[in-house]
Design a protein around this nucleic acid. Structure first.
Lengths: 342, 342
DNA sequence: TGAATTTTCCAAAGCGCTTTGATAATTGCT
DNA sequence: AGCAATTATCAAAGCGCTTTGGAAAATTCA
């Protein structure tokens, strides 16, 4: 069933039917009801492609997932971010288009998205230091919002980020307050902006207290469970092993936990663990009592909010960039305690 | 830049330019090269909406993610599945459209996808027992492929599934061979087809050996880490606790591990654990030596293969349904050993 | 009651592409 | 050279919608 058929069926012009369906005022209420009823019974809905062609809007947003061919890693936070964003999109009648791009042809993906008019706006995932995608997108001229930020980029752009620096500063302070001085940092890949900022927060906290940072107890890699496990295993072999671990992802934190418990140590007593917690739906940090003391910020909320901001950018075209900084919340669990230099 | 401008610029008709771009034979090679070069320099690509309107194809597939409002759970395997599928789509010039649907309006989402012509085909995620979406989609008449199956549905449909029953039968046999008789089952929600089949495989193995199944050591829920932890904690309090755990997800398996180690027991010695392993990219089951003995089947591969099958369904319309059954591979790790009735 | 509004509806153009049916330019053959 | 066959190009219709610029019908006002 298409508009022509429906309107003929109703004995009305396409114009009137279209207007009735789209809520324009210049159609009699009785007529509108008649049209709506007919549309419902015939299961009619305006063809998307035709509608979008006529209006010049794609009514879709793009999420480009960079998938480095080396790591073949799907960011675990991705699912929840998408869930949050998707909620907002569907509420606003937007489709969400996902593109998987290996990093070598990512630029082409963005260019195509623009040239083909597939989307009205883009969310950029996983920004790196000096990320060149920002310049590219500014040049292309498609509204976009970065989930995270890109240190080193001076050009203006819209972003939504968690305050990673303050979260890690705060977490480190918390451990320092408990008397810890050997605090390991199990961080994400430090080419990624979030990881860079987290390390910075960690450093600043140490510096403020005059604690020297020790490269032997700092690691940076893809945040798998195994990475946490391996890192902790290695560090426990040191002459002076860490008394506390600050971990960038709850997944790796589980790995650290496994290593520590495997070594027969008691968490929260012999060794403390603090982690960043994205509040992933399938990796909840405990139910009532948090498993880990954690700096928590829901990535699902971030997804929701990012989508809202992007839609705003699309609607109010070429205004000045938008940005929003979310603060993580420190939740004290059972994985931390006073230093034990037993 | 659009086709009209480009063709005027080249001094050719739209027809010729369009044909040159789309690889039709009735255009001189020299002309084609000239057109391609111009398209490249002007960064021209055919507008998607217009092209799809003209051809009547959406060149897009839909992935509908059911998100029950109760659980608010994003399936952790989703990211990797999508990564696999997306690879295939982009290779074939298809877009991937994600819709998040709360279960109450899921039917509407499918109907809309068809009525609006947004997609050419759909992948159905998370099939339940007697899943009524299958009848719905058959009625709607949009090509679709189910990732998984729906026991109880007799109507024909296309699917791709792992042999969950044989995987869990095999895993249970493995534990029985090691002498275990108290084998706990930490399963997913048994309204979900995969979990139902897994339990069935487990039961069959027990039955074959004349081991009575014990409801006290069977649990079924969303497969979070905490669920595994809690279940194992509770079971270890039983008069006769399990000597082995068969777990439906590596995430819950980590929870079981945490509980077991928290109780001071040694995994692979005091207690055995076997898990299903979807080979999630951020939750690798160890690097060389598997952490857990596991029935393994890559969900990324499943995503790739599902996409291929769906495209096949779309291209060769209304042929008989396609299906494919993948076998999981049992990988022996360090988490299992002979029963220890200490 | 008739003119001036206002309300309700419509025909037709246009969005940017593909594709059909025809024409113009080449080539091959005798 | 002259005609048929082939190759290369084009004008125009059509995909299903929105929207502009009117026109017809209903209502208001004097």
């Amino acid at each position: 069933m298409n508009l022509k058929e429906l309107s003929r069926h109703l004995g009305l012009s396409q114009t009137t039917v279209s207007r009735a369906l789209n809520g324009y005022p210049e159609v009699k209420e009785a007529t509108r009801q008649r049209v709506l009823a007919a549309a419902r019974t015939h299961n009619y809905a305006a063809n998307n492609r035709a509608k979008n062609l006529a209006t010049g809007q794609a009514m879709a947003t793009g999420h480009v997932i960079p998938l480095s061919s080396r790591h073949e890693m799907m960011n675990p936070i991705f699912g929840d971010f998408i869930a949050g964003a998707g909620e907002v999109y569907s509420k606003n009648g937007y489709e969400m288009i996902l593109s998987i791009a290996n990093d070598d042809d990512e630029a082409r993906v963005y260019r195509d998205l623009k040239a083909k008019g597939t989307v009205d706006g883009i969310i950029v995932h996983g920004p790196k230091l000096n990320d060149d995608r920002i310049a590219l997108l500014n040049e292309i001229g498609l509204p976009f919002l970065v989930h995270g930020r890109a240190s080193g980029i001076t050009a203006p752009y819209s972003w939504l980020d968690v305050n990673n620096r303050s979260a890690f500063k705060r977490a480190t302070d918390f451990l320092l307050d408990l008397g810890h001085r050997k605090i390991a940092l199990i961080n994400g890949l430090e080419t990624m902006d979030f990881a860079y900022r987290r390390r910075d927060g960690y450093h600043r906290a140490l510096e403020e207290r005059g604690v020297r940072s020790d490269p032997d107890i700092m690691r940076s890699d893809e945040m798998t469970e195994f990475f946490g496990y391996r890192s902790a295993c290695e560090m426990m072999m040191l002459d002076v092993p860490p008394t506390a671990y600050l971990v960038s992802s709850i997944i790796s934190a589980f790995g650290v936990r496994r290593a520590v418990e495997g070594a027969g140590l008691k968490i929260g007593k012999d060794v403390s663990i603090v982690t960043f917690d994205d509040a992933l739906s399938y990796l909840r940090n405990g139910e009532d009592v948090p498993i880990f003391t954690a700096a928590r910020s829901s990535v699902r909320d971030a997804g929701r909010r990012s989508a809202e901001l992007l839609l705003q950018l699309i609607r109010t075209n070429n205004t000045s960039p938008l940005s929003e900084l979310l603060e993580a919340e420190l939740m004290v669990g059972t994985s931390t305690g006073p230093v034990n230099n037993g």
